[in-house]
């Protein structure tokens, strides 16, 4: 008689989803930066349709996770904040998308 196989814990791919990315605003930020390489704060705000404060809050979370890099500069006299993915962030987003594809069956 063979012993009953214990149920495998956390086998569903959803457990592999990165919690830092898997939140509505942070996901949109990551997707925009992954597609465009660099975007400014204003572009992100208008594309994602969120307030300055909410965007700042989520960008801070992504920066603390080491996924996003922010650099400040000027365009003429206007201050601009440019955001881009770090290598770690790009890798995390690629993994996240792979997990999503596994969950929904590779569309």
């Amino acid at each position: 008689m063979t012993a009953a196989k214990p149920p495998q814990e956390n086998s569903h791919p959803r457990h592999d989803l990165d919690d830092v990315i898997h939140a509505p605003v942070r996901l949109s930020i990551m997707a925009a930066l992954a597609a465009g390489e660099q975007a400014d704060f204003r572009f992100l705000k208008e594309t994602i349709e969120v307030s300055d404060s909410l965007l700042s809050k989520h960008l801070l979370a992504l920066e603390e996770a080491g996924y996003v890099n922010a650099s400040k500069g000027y365009e003429g006299k206007r201050p601009r904040t440019w955001l881009s993915l770090t290598d770690r962030g790009r890798e995390a987003f690629t993994n996240y998308m792979d997990v999503l594809r596994r969950i929904i069956g590779n569309p």
Binding site: A23, P24, L27, T47
Partner: peptide
């Protein structure tokens, strides 16, 4: 807010299209 896998995928596609539009 709970984010389903398919809605996450749709949001990624939407944002990518917005970025592509700006680039174009």
């Amino acid at each position: 807010m709970e984010l389903s896998a398919s809605s996450a995928f749709d949001e990624v596609r939407r944002v990518e299209e917005e970025v592509r539009k700006a680039r174009r």
